[in-house]
């Protein structure tokens, strides 16, 4: 077995890459003209988010995000968007105000987060990740499955609702 020595720490590289992917595809979701591309880039947002979760040491949440959010939900959005015709071009509105509001909220949040993190120092690696899967498998497995089942029935209900013919 060989040790790989990278000049740049690989974790930082992955972090930078996925953060850039996250922000760029978030902008593309809003600005692209085609709905299908927008839904596709929403999927990219979910993927990059899952990578960020895994980087913070919470692999189970990353996997859950991949299976439920990217694999099912966003696919469902994509699947539905494919059925619409492409939207007509809407007449442009004055967007600078919206941009300013968005930037203001982002700045406020960033400042707030910074003030929170200034108070308490960082700590070591989380230890809860080791016991949790065993707990889920042994104690909460059936409960988790029932939650899944409920969510699934909601989804099916929604599908049935959408498929019903409109009588008019």
């Amino acid at each position: 077995m060989i040790e790989f020595n990278f000049l740049i720490p690989i974790e930082d590289t992955i972090f930078l890459f996925s953060a850039a992917l996250l922000l760029i595809s978030a902008v593309l979701v809003i600005e692209l003209r085609s709905h299908v591309y927008a839904a596709f880039f929403l999927e990219m947002v979910g993927l990059a988010n899952a990578v960020l979760f895994a980087l913070q040491g919470l692999a189970l949440i990353a996997i859950f995000q991949l299976v439920v959010y990217v694999g099912a939900t966003v696919t469902f959005i994509l699947f539905s968007v494919l059925m619409f015709k492409e939207a007509k071009p809407v007449k442009p509105r004055f967007k600078l105000l919206d941009l300013l509001i968005g930037a203001g909220i982002a700045g406020l949040l960033a400042v707030g987060a910074f003030s929170i993190y200034k108070v308490s120092p960082t700590a070591g690696k989380p230890s809860l990740d080791v016991t949790l899967p065993e707990k889920i498998v042994s104690e909460y497995g059936l409960a988790l499955f029932l939650v899944f089942f409920t969510l699934l029935t909601t989804l099916i209900e929604a599908l049935v609702l959408a498929r019903r013919e409109v009588s008019s």
Binding site: L23, I30, A103, A110
Partner: peptide
């Protein structure tokens, strides 16, 4: 180890983008 503040910074920028999208699209 990446500074945890960076994640919150990304999150707030993403929030700003989302707010802009909701406000500007019909």
């Amino acid at each position: 180890m990446i500074n945890p503040y960076l994640y919150l910074l990304i999150s707030s920028v993403l929030f700003g983008i989302g707010v802009y999208g909701i406000l500007s699209k019909r």
